[in-house]
C-alpha cells in the first residue's frame, strides 16, 4: 500500500470513528476492505481508496468505516465483569434507584448484541428482585450492519458456544435451522440505536450503568478523555462504568476512579 493512501485512510478513519490505525495495522486495511471492493466490483483495495479519494462518496466512506471497526464479541465476554455486575453493581444501583424503580443501562459498543443480551439474561435471572421495575438496556454502535444482526439476535453454533453456559442457551434461545435465535422475551429488553461516540451523547438520556468495553483502546488519548467526560455527564453520582480489561481511566480522565476490588469497574469522582 502506498504511504499516501495509508495516511489518507488513517486520517479519514480517525475523523469518522476515532479509530487510530497505526502503520503496523496497515494489513487490516487490506484484509477488511477487500470484501468491500468486491461488493462494488472494484478490482482491489488500492482502487477502492482511489475511488474514495476521487469521488468522496459518502455511502462508500460509511461502509469502509464500518468494515474497519472491530466487531468481535461473545456472550459474557471475560465473565468476571458480568459476575461483578450481578453481585456488586446491580445491588448497589438497585438500592440507589429504589425510589424511582427504574434502571437504565447503556452498552456503548453493542456490536452483534452479545453484551446487551448477556446483561438482559442476568436481569431475567434476577427477575424476582426486579418485579415492578422499569428496566431499559440501550445498545449503540457505529456499524449499522452489526446493529441489524444484534436486532435479529441470530447467532451461529460457534457464537453461542463462546461464553454462553448451556443452561442459558436452552432457556433463552430457539433453534432456527443451523442457527440460534435469542427469545423475544430477552430481545425485547434491549433497544438498539445507531450512534457515534464522537457525537454529542446527551440525546441518549441518563444511565445508571454504562458498559464501554474494548472501545477506548482504539482511540487516542485526547479522544479517550473526551468520550469519558461525555459519558460522565450522562450518569448520576452513584453511576457505575465498566471498561475493558486493557483499558483504564488513569492518566486519561479524572471524572472516574477505579472501584477497589472490582477490576474494570469505575465510579464517578464528582470532579
Amino acid at each position: 500500500m502506498k504511504p499516501e493512501d495509508f495516511q489518507f485512510m488513517s486520517t479519514m478513519l480517525k475523523q469518522r470513528s476515532g479509530l487510530v490505525l497505526n502503520e503496523d495495522k496497515a494489513y487490516l486495511l487490506e484484509s477488511r476492505l477487500m470484501p468491500v471492493s468486491r461488493a462494488h466490483n472494484i478490482k482491489g483495495v488500492e482502487e477502492l481508496i482511489a475511488e474514495i479519494r476521487k469521488t468522496n462518496n459518502e455511502a462508500l466512506i460509511v461502509e469502509v468505516t464500518e468494515a474497519m471497526t472491530t466487531n468481535e464479541s461473545f456472550f459474557f465476554r471475560d465473565i468476571k465483569p458480568f459476575d461483578m455486575f450481578k453481585d456488586h453493581v446491580l445491588p448497589h444501583v438497585l438500592e440507589k434507584c429504589a425510589a424511582k424503580k427504574s434502571l437504565r443501562i447503556w452498552c456503548a459498543a453493542a456490536s452483534n448484541g452479545q453484551e446487551p443480551y448477556s446483561l438482559a439474561m442476568i436481569l431475567k435471572e434476577e427477575a424476582a428482585k426486579l418485579a415492578g421495575w422499569k428496566i431499559e438496556i440501550i445498545g449503540t454502535d457505529i456499524s449499522r450492519q452489526v446493529l441489524k444482526k444484534a436486532e435479529q439476535g441470530l447467532y451461529s453454533q460457534f457464537e453461542v458456544q463462546r461464553g454462553l453456559p448451556i443452561t442459558l442457551l436452552v432457556k433463552y434461545f430457539d433453534k432456527q435451522d443451523d442457527q440460534w435465535q435469542i427469545k423475544p422475551e430477552i430481545r425485547s429488553m434491549v433497544q438498539y440505536k445507531y450512534y457515534n461516540l464522537l457525537d454529542s451523547l446527551t440525546a441518549l438520556g441518563h444511565f445508571d450503568v454504562v458498559f464501554c468495553r474494548n472501545v477506548l483502546i482504539y482511540f487516542d488519548q485526547p479522544t479517550k478523555g473526551k468520550v469519558l467526560e461525555e459519558i460522565s455527564k450522562l450518569m448520576p453520582d452513584y453511576g457505575m462504568l465498566f471498561l475493558g480489561g486493557a483499558e483504564t481511566v488513569l492518566g486519561v480522565s479524572d471524572k472516574f476512579a477505579p472501584v477497589a476490588g472490582q477490576r474494570g469497574v469505575y465510579a464517578l469522582t464528582g470532579k
Binding site: 453454533q157 460457534f158 458456544q161 463462546r162 461464553g163 453456559p165 448451556i166 443452561t167 442457551l169 436452552v170
Partner: peptide, 25 residues
C-alpha cells in the same frame, strides 16, 4: 441438550469444536 442436562451433564459442546470452545466450557 435438555436430556443431557437432566441426566446430570454439567456442560455441552456441539461439534465441531476447537481448543477455544473446550477451554471456555
Amino acid at each position: 441438550i435438555q436430556e443431557a442436562i437432566e441426566a446430570g451433564a454439567n456442560e455441552y459442546i456441539m461439534k465441531p469444536f476447537d481448543s477455544e470452545i473446550i477451554q471456555g466450557k
